[in-house]
Design a protein around this nucleic acid. Structure first.
Lengths: 165, 165
DNA sequence: TATTGTTATACTCTATAACTATA
DNA sequence: TATAGTTATAGAGTATAACAATA
């Protein structure tokens, strides 16, 4: 447990982090904004999946994910094939053109980080990655733990609650 | 210098950090979105200042800052008094109502972090804060260092370049 | 009835450009 | 002419709600 002043300083850095995010976003191709880039990157890492799974990984609403997916599909970077197990769903898969896009973006972001973090050593980078990973986990865990005292319900609904009348 | 795989993992965490930011934003009062909150917090920390200084601290364009400032001024959380040294500028100052707002938001964010980071110790929190501070500094430094080989120019322009014809 | 996914709408944040008042 | 600040416009991300098709 930390003290209030420590938390306030941490929040200040959270806020200031936006500038880093924006600078990273600026080097992306103009037809591939950060939302699209995230979709392609996650498909490359985790393999084929449905939109609902992608929304969970992105931690955004499925409606948002649906838009990002439509954008990259229009450009031929992913394919949507029918899901044999459920006709409501489709399986998303990176195309060769999409894989090229992922490689190109990875090259650019790596180059930018190598420049900006030129005086960071491996352990610095690893430590920051670990702590940010843990931070996200701490927020995710609490979401499951606090919002659902009865843990026998599906967590992480990535969508707007259905209004059933 | 780190390797490509390490950078890619770091970028992944940058992207995922959005979920943390959004959860922090959700606990703000509905009439005080994160942009307004940042303005109030910085004025509370750094004292009275002009908009151009605020834009520099926020690391966003002055036009954006101007909108945020207008929002908080309309609600009576800051005052804008004339700058005796330059009639084009005004000095921004937190009002007592603004100070109340800052305290209330600080209370909420501290509580949220105390919940979410309940199993983090002081050193964990301090380490993350340090690394994020350094990250931002590394990006800021490079901005000054790379974009202006002739270092005899004003850096950190927080505004759209004037089109002079 | 409930779930997967899509679309319509609205809100916030941001940048660019054009404009004003002053330096 | 250049700078401080404002406003108009546009683009991106997100959430909520309503809808269609399927489970």
């Amino acid at each position: 447990m930390a003290e209030q002043a420590q938390y306030e300083e941490l929040v200040r850095q959270f806020s200031a982090f936006g500038a880093v995010k924006r600078e990273m976003a600026r080097i992306l191709p103009s037809d591939c904004p950060s939302g699209s880039a995230a979709v392609l990157t996650l498909l490359s890492r985790h393999g084929d999946m449905r939109i609902s799974k992608l929304a969970e990984l992105l931690a955004v609403d499925m409606s948002v994910t649906s838009r990002h997916v439509a954008h990259v599909a229009e450009r031929g970077w992913i394919e949507r094939s029918p899901d044999p197990a459920d006709k409501r769903s489709r399986i998303l898969r990176l195309t060769p053109a999409g894989e090229d896009r992922v490689r190109e973006m990875s090259r650019r972001t790596t180059q930018l980080l190598a420049e900006r973090l030129s005086d960071w050593n491996d352990e610095d980078v690893a430590q920051l990655t670990r702590l940010m990973t843990r931070l996200r986990a701490s927020f995710d865990d609490c979401r499951s733990a606090h919002r659902a005292p009865p843990p026998d319900q599906p967590e992480h609904s990535t969508r707007t609650p259905a209004i059933t009348q």
